[in-house]
Design a protein around this nucleic acid. Structure first.
Lengths: 145, 145
DNA sequence: TTGATTTCATACTAAAGTACTGGTATATTT
DNA sequence: AAATATACCAGTACTTTAGTATGAAATCAA
Protein backbone atom coordinates (compact mmCIF):
# COMPACT_ATOMS: atom_id res chain seq x y z
CA UNK A 1 0.00 0.00 0.00
CA UNK A 2 2.99 2.24 -0.57
CA UNK A 3 3.84 4.64 -3.36
CA UNK A 4 7.04 3.41 -5.04
CA UNK A 5 10.21 5.40 -5.56
CA UNK A 6 9.18 5.93 -9.18
CA UNK A 7 6.22 8.04 -8.17
CA UNK A 8 7.98 9.82 -5.34
CA UNK A 9 11.06 10.65 -7.37
CA UNK A 10 8.87 11.77 -10.28
CA UNK A 11 7.24 14.38 -8.06
CA UNK A 12 10.60 15.58 -6.77
CA UNK A 13 11.90 15.84 -10.30
CA UNK A 14 8.84 17.69 -11.57
CA UNK A 15 9.16 20.17 -8.72
CA UNK A 16 12.78 20.70 -9.70
CA UNK A 17 11.78 21.31 -13.32
CA UNK A 18 9.13 23.69 -12.08
CA UNK A 19 11.72 25.86 -10.36
CA UNK A 20 13.11 26.73 -13.77
CA UNK A 21 11.74 29.41 -16.04
CA UNK A 22 9.54 28.48 -18.98
CA UNK A 23 11.37 27.18 -22.04
CA UNK A 24 14.49 26.32 -20.08
CA UNK A 25 15.93 22.82 -20.13
CA UNK A 26 17.26 21.17 -17.00
CA UNK A 27 19.69 18.27 -17.27
CA UNK A 28 19.31 15.09 -15.25
CA UNK A 29 22.83 15.68 -14.00
CA UNK A 30 21.65 18.79 -12.22
CA UNK A 31 18.51 17.17 -10.85
CA UNK A 32 20.57 14.19 -9.74
CA UNK A 33 22.85 16.46 -7.72
CA UNK A 34 20.05 18.45 -6.12
CA UNK A 35 17.78 15.52 -5.37
CA UNK A 36 20.41 12.82 -4.80
CA UNK A 37 18.95 10.30 -7.24
CA UNK A 38 21.09 8.55 -9.85
CA UNK A 39 20.96 9.92 -13.39
CA UNK A 40 20.33 6.40 -14.67
CA UNK A 41 17.26 5.94 -12.54
CA UNK A 42 15.99 9.39 -13.37
CA UNK A 43 16.28 8.49 -17.04
CA UNK A 44 13.71 5.74 -16.58
CA UNK A 45 11.32 8.16 -14.96
CA UNK A 46 11.75 10.88 -17.58
CA UNK A 47 11.08 8.19 -20.17
CA UNK A 48 7.62 7.59 -18.71
CA UNK A 49 6.83 11.26 -18.26
CA UNK A 50 8.06 12.12 -21.73
CA UNK A 51 6.06 9.36 -23.40
CA UNK A 52 2.98 10.55 -21.55
CA UNK A 53 3.58 14.09 -22.78
CA UNK A 54 4.10 15.61 -19.34
CA UNK A 55 7.58 16.87 -20.15
CA UNK A 56 9.52 17.88 -23.27
CA UNK A 57 13.03 16.54 -23.69
CA UNK A 58 15.95 17.49 -25.89
CA UNK A 59 19.20 15.61 -26.46
CA UNK A 60 22.60 17.08 -26.88
CA UNK A 61 24.98 19.32 -25.09
CA UNK A 62 22.45 21.98 -24.13
CA UNK A 63 19.57 19.54 -23.82
CA UNK A 64 17.58 18.31 -20.87
CA UNK A 65 13.96 18.31 -19.81
CA UNK A 66 11.31 20.93 -19.24
CA UNK A 67 7.69 21.04 -18.26
CA UNK A 68 5.23 20.87 -21.13
CA UNK A 69 2.72 23.08 -19.29
CA UNK A 70 2.62 25.56 -16.44
CA UNK A 71 3.00 24.01 -12.93
CA UNK A 72 -0.61 24.83 -12.05
CA UNK A 73 -1.76 22.75 -15.01
CA UNK A 74 -0.49 19.49 -13.48
CA UNK A 75 -2.19 17.69 -10.65
CA UNK A 76 -0.24 15.32 -8.43
CA UNK A 77 -2.65 12.65 -9.67
CA UNK A 78 -1.59 13.21 -13.27
CA UNK A 79 2.02 12.54 -12.36
CA UNK A 80 1.36 9.58 -10.07
CA UNK A 81 -0.95 7.80 -12.48
CA UNK A 82 1.76 7.93 -15.16
CA UNK A 83 4.53 6.64 -12.93
CA UNK A 84 2.61 4.36 -10.56
CA UNK A 85 -0.12 3.14 -12.83
CA UNK A 86 -3.68 3.28 -11.57
CA UNK A 87 -4.19 4.28 -7.95
CA UNK A 88 -6.95 1.66 -7.62
CA UNK A 89 -6.50 -0.37 -4.43
CA UNK A 90 -7.46 -3.66 -6.11
CA UNK A 91 -6.53 -5.09 -9.50
CA UNK A 92 -10.11 -5.73 -10.61
CA UNK A 93 -10.67 -1.96 -10.82
CA UNK A 94 -7.78 -1.44 -13.24
CA UNK A 95 -8.91 -0.60 -16.74
CA UNK A 96 -7.11 -3.44 -18.46
CA UNK A 97 -8.23 -6.03 -15.94
CA UNK A 98 -10.54 -8.92 -16.73
CA UNK A 99 -13.91 -8.69 -14.99
CA UNK A 100 -13.84 -10.44 -11.62
CA UNK A 101 -15.86 -13.63 -11.48
CA UNK A 102 -16.81 -12.94 -7.87
CA UNK A 103 -18.33 -9.58 -8.76
CA UNK A 104 -21.89 -10.85 -8.41
CA UNK A 105 -21.60 -11.54 -4.70
CA UNK A 106 -18.63 -9.29 -3.88
CA UNK A 107 -19.33 -7.44 -0.65
CA UNK A 108 -16.35 -5.15 -1.02
CA UNK A 109 -16.36 -3.79 -4.57
CA UNK A 110 -18.16 -0.59 -3.57
CA UNK A 111 -15.65 -0.19 -0.74
CA UNK A 112 -12.74 -0.32 -3.16
CA UNK A 113 -14.45 1.93 -5.68
CA UNK A 114 -15.04 4.45 -2.94
CA UNK A 115 -11.46 4.25 -1.72
CA UNK A 116 -10.17 4.74 -5.26
CA UNK A 117 -12.37 7.79 -5.59
CA UNK A 118 -11.24 9.52 -2.40
CA UNK A 119 -7.61 8.85 -3.31
CA UNK A 120 -7.98 10.16 -6.86
CA UNK A 121 -10.01 13.17 -5.75
CA UNK A 122 -7.39 14.04 -3.18
CA UNK A 123 -4.34 13.83 -5.45
CA UNK A 124 -6.21 15.65 -8.20
CA UNK A 125 -6.87 18.51 -5.80
CA UNK A 126 -3.20 19.31 -5.41
CA UNK A 127 -1.14 20.82 -8.22
CA UNK A 128 2.53 20.85 -9.00
CA UNK A 129 2.43 24.56 -8.23
CA UNK A 130 1.27 23.77 -4.70
CA UNK A 131 4.30 21.49 -4.26
CA UNK A 132 6.58 24.11 -5.75
CA UNK A 133 5.31 26.69 -3.26
CA UNK A 134 5.97 24.29 -0.39
CA UNK A 135 9.47 23.74 -1.72
CA UNK A 136 10.12 27.47 -1.90
CA UNK A 137 8.59 27.98 1.54
CA UNK A 138 11.00 25.47 3.01
CA UNK A 139 13.99 26.99 1.30
CA UNK A 140 14.74 23.96 -0.84
CA UNK A 141 14.91 26.28 -3.78
CA UNK A 142 17.48 29.02 -3.74
CA UNK A 143 16.19 32.18 -5.33
CA UNK A 144 18.41 33.26 -8.18
CA UNK A 145 18.44 36.81 -9.42
CA UNK B 1 -0.41 0.91 -4.43
CA UNK B 2 -2.55 -2.19 -4.09
CA UNK B 3 -4.13 -3.86 -1.08
CA UNK B 4 -2.64 -7.35 -0.79
CA UNK B 5 -4.56 -10.61 -0.59
CA UNK B 6 -4.01 -10.61 3.18
CA UNK B 7 -6.19 -7.56 3.63
CA UNK B 8 -8.76 -8.54 1.05
CA UNK B 9 -9.11 -12.10 2.32
CA UNK B 10 -9.28 -10.82 5.90
CA UNK B 11 -12.32 -8.73 5.03
CA UNK B 12 -14.01 -11.64 3.27
CA UNK B 13 -13.31 -13.87 6.25
CA UNK B 14 -14.56 -11.35 8.77
CA UNK B 15 -17.77 -10.96 6.77
CA UNK B 16 -18.17 -14.73 6.83
CA UNK B 17 -17.67 -14.78 10.61
CA UNK B 18 -20.19 -11.97 10.89
CA UNK B 19 -22.87 -14.07 9.23
CA UNK B 20 -22.79 -16.36 12.24
CA UNK B 21 -24.65 -15.75 15.48
CA UNK B 22 -22.78 -14.42 18.48
CA UNK B 23 -20.77 -16.97 20.43
CA UNK B 24 -20.66 -19.41 17.56
CA UNK B 25 -17.35 -20.72 16.21
CA UNK B 26 -16.76 -21.08 12.48
CA UNK B 27 -14.04 -23.42 11.22
CA UNK B 28 -11.55 -22.36 8.58
CA UNK B 29 -12.63 -25.40 6.61
CA UNK B 30 -16.07 -23.88 6.20
CA UNK B 31 -14.74 -20.42 5.32
CA UNK B 32 -12.29 -22.00 2.91
CA UNK B 33 -15.14 -23.69 1.06
CA UNK B 34 -17.37 -20.64 0.91
CA UNK B 35 -14.66 -18.15 0.01
CA UNK B 36 -12.37 -20.43 -1.97
CA UNK B 37 -9.22 -19.60 -0.04
CA UNK B 38 -6.87 -22.33 1.26
CA UNK B 39 -7.17 -23.25 4.93
CA UNK B 40 -3.40 -22.84 5.26
CA UNK B 41 -3.44 -19.28 4.03
CA UNK B 42 -6.47 -18.41 6.13
CA UNK B 43 -4.51 -19.65 9.16
CA UNK B 44 -1.94 -16.93 8.64
CA UNK B 45 -4.63 -14.31 8.50
CA UNK B 46 -6.48 -15.56 11.57
CA UNK B 47 -3.13 -15.55 13.35
CA UNK B 48 -2.82 -11.81 12.81
CA UNK B 49 -6.43 -11.03 13.63
CA UNK B 50 -6.30 -13.20 16.74
CA UNK B 51 -3.10 -11.62 18.02
CA UNK B 52 -4.63 -8.20 17.51
CA UNK B 53 -7.70 -9.26 19.47
CA UNK B 54 -10.14 -8.87 16.61
CA UNK B 55 -11.27 -12.48 16.75
CA UNK B 56 -11.42 -15.24 19.35
CA UNK B 57 -10.10 -18.63 18.40
CA UNK B 58 -10.52 -22.10 19.91
CA UNK B 59 -8.72 -25.31 19.05
CA UNK B 60 -10.23 -28.72 19.03
CA UNK B 61 -13.11 -30.55 17.49
CA UNK B 62 -15.76 -27.89 18.01
CA UNK B 63 -13.31 -25.03 17.66
CA UNK B 64 -12.93 -22.32 15.12
CA UNK B 65 -13.05 -18.56 15.09
CA UNK B 66 -15.58 -15.96 16.06
CA UNK B 67 -15.81 -12.19 16.18
CA UNK B 68 -14.73 -10.61 19.46
CA UNK B 69 -17.25 -7.80 19.09
CA UNK B 70 -20.42 -7.00 17.17
CA UNK B 71 -19.97 -6.33 13.42
CA UNK B 72 -20.84 -2.66 13.83
CA UNK B 73 -17.93 -2.29 16.26
CA UNK B 74 -15.31 -2.97 13.58
CA UNK B 75 -14.30 -0.51 10.93
CA UNK B 76 -12.76 -1.68 7.69
CA UNK B 77 -9.74 0.37 8.72
CA UNK B 78 -9.32 -1.67 11.91
CA UNK B 79 -9.11 -4.86 9.89
CA UNK B 80 -6.89 -3.48 7.13
CA UNK B 81 -4.38 -1.89 9.47
CA UNK B 82 -3.88 -5.23 11.23
CA UNK B 83 -3.40 -7.24 8.06
CA UNK B 84 -1.79 -4.67 5.77
CA UNK B 85 0.13 -2.65 8.28
CA UNK B 86 -0.18 1.12 8.14
CA UNK B 87 -2.11 2.57 5.22
CA UNK B 88 0.44 5.39 4.96
CA UNK B 89 1.52 5.87 1.34
CA UNK B 90 5.17 6.44 2.27
CA UNK B 91 7.44 4.66 4.74
CA UNK B 92 8.51 7.80 6.58
CA UNK B 93 4.97 8.17 7.95
CA UNK B 94 5.00 4.70 9.53
CA UNK B 95 5.18 4.79 13.29
CA UNK B 96 8.30 2.67 13.64
CA UNK B 97 10.17 4.53 10.91
CA UNK B 98 13.25 6.62 11.49
CA UNK B 99 12.74 10.33 10.86
CA UNK B 100 13.50 11.25 7.25
CA UNK B 101 16.63 13.33 6.80
CA UNK B 102 15.03 15.21 3.95
CA UNK B 103 12.12 16.33 6.09
CA UNK B 104 13.40 19.89 6.41
CA UNK B 105 13.03 20.66 2.72
CA UNK B 106 10.52 17.97 1.76
CA UNK B 107 7.89 19.49 -0.51
CA UNK B 108 5.63 16.43 -0.38
CA UNK B 109 5.30 15.42 3.28
CA UNK B 110 2.03 17.32 3.73
CA UNK B 111 0.75 15.69 0.55
CA UNK B 112 1.39 12.22 1.93
CA UNK B 113 0.01 13.09 5.33
CA UNK B 114 -3.16 14.35 3.68
CA UNK B 115 -3.45 11.26 1.51
CA UNK B 116 -3.00 9.02 4.53
CA UNK B 117 -5.74 10.95 6.29
CA UNK B 118 -8.33 10.70 3.54
CA UNK B 119 -7.62 7.00 3.18
CA UNK B 120 -7.88 6.32 6.91
CA UNK B 121 -10.97 8.48 7.28
CA UNK B 122 -12.65 6.65 4.45
CA UNK B 123 -11.96 3.11 5.62
CA UNK B 124 -12.87 4.09 9.18
CA UNK B 125 -16.24 5.28 7.97
CA UNK B 126 -17.30 1.84 6.84
CA UNK B 127 -18.04 -0.94 9.29
CA UNK B 128 -18.02 -4.69 9.03
CA UNK B 129 -21.79 -4.51 9.40
CA UNK B 130 -21.97 -2.41 6.24
CA UNK B 131 -20.06 -5.09 4.36
CA UNK B 132 -22.27 -7.79 5.85
CA UNK B 133 -25.37 -5.96 4.63
CA UNK B 134 -23.89 -5.74 1.14
CA UNK B 135 -23.16 -9.45 1.26
CA UNK B 136 -26.73 -10.27 2.30
CA UNK B 137 -28.11 -7.88 -0.31
CA UNK B 138 -26.22 -9.68 -3.02
CA UNK B 139 -27.32 -13.10 -1.83
CA UNK B 140 -23.85 -14.30 -0.92
CA UNK B 141 -25.23 -15.36 2.43
CA UNK B 142 -27.99 -17.91 2.48
CA UNK B 143 -30.49 -17.18 5.18
CA UNK B 144 -30.86 -20.12 7.54
CA UNK B 145 -33.95 -20.55 9.65
C1' DT C 1 35.00 16.83 -37.96
C1' DT C 2 35.88 15.65 -33.43
C1' DG C 3 34.66 15.48 -28.79
C1' DA C 4 31.71 16.49 -25.00
C1' DT C 5 27.24 16.28 -23.39
C1' DT C 6 22.82 14.60 -22.95
C1' DT C 7 18.83 11.73 -23.86
C1' DC C 8 16.96 7.07 -25.29
C1' DA C 9 16.39 2.11 -25.22
C1' DT C 10 17.17 -2.21 -23.29
C1' DA C 11 19.07 -5.65 -20.51
C1' DC C 12 20.45 -7.32 -16.28
C1' DT C 13 20.57 -8.14 -11.17
C1' DA C 14 20.14 -8.23 -6.16
C1' DA C 15 16.94 -7.75 -2.63
C1' DA C 16 12.49 -7.63 -0.90
C1' DG C 17 7.76 -8.73 -0.84
C1' DT C 18 3.73 -11.72 -2.06
C1' DA C 19 1.23 -15.73 -1.99
C1' DC C 20 1.22 -19.48 -0.93
C1' DT C 21 2.39 -24.98 0.95
C1' DG C 22 4.05 -28.42 4.51
C1' DG C 23 4.85 -30.36 8.79
C1' DT C 24 4.44 -30.74 13.65
C1' DA C 25 2.40 -29.60 17.97
C1' DT C 26 -1.47 -28.74 20.77
C1' DA C 27 -6.25 -28.62 22.33
C1' DT C 28 -11.07 -30.40 22.46
C1' DT C 29 -14.91 -33.43 21.66
C1' DT C 30 -16.82 -37.90 21.02
C1' DA D 1 -8.00 -43.42 21.57
C1' DA D 2 -9.49 -41.29 17.41
C1' DA D 3 -11.05 -37.51 14.92
C1' DT D 4 -11.26 -32.74 14.38
C1' DA D 5 -9.47 -28.28 14.52
C1' DT D 6 -6.37 -24.39 15.26
C1' DA D 7 -1.29 -22.63 16.33
C1' DC D 8 3.13 -22.07 15.06
C1' DC D 9 7.36 -22.37 12.44
C1' DA D 10 9.59 -23.08 8.14
C1' DG D 11 10.27 -23.30 3.39
C1' DT D 12 9.50 -22.09 -1.52
C1' DA D 13 8.15 -20.31 -6.02
C1' DC D 14 7.06 -16.21 -8.11
C1' DT D 15 6.73 -11.29 -8.82
C1' DT D 16 7.95 -6.63 -8.00
C1' DT D 17 11.07 -3.08 -6.73
C1' DA D 18 14.95 -0.44 -7.11
C1' DG D 19 18.20 0.08 -8.96
C1' DT D 20 22.95 -0.60 -12.32
C1' DA D 21 25.22 -1.49 -16.89
C1' DT D 22 25.90 -1.05 -21.64
C1' DG D 23 25.68 1.20 -25.58
C1' DA D 24 23.46 3.84 -29.29
C1' DA D 25 21.68 8.21 -31.07
C1' DA D 26 21.25 13.10 -31.19
C1' DT D 27 22.94 17.78 -30.50
C1' DC D 28 26.13 21.43 -29.91
C1' DA D 29 30.57 23.80 -29.55
C1' DA D 30 35.23 24.33 -30.74
Amino acid sequence: MKISTKGRYALRMMVELATKGEGQYTSLKEISKKQDISVKYLEQITGMLSKAGLIKSARGAAGGHMLAKRPDQYTVGDILRVTEGSLAPVACLDEKSLPCERLGTCATIELWQGLAKVKNDYVDGITLEDLLNKYKEKGGYEYVI
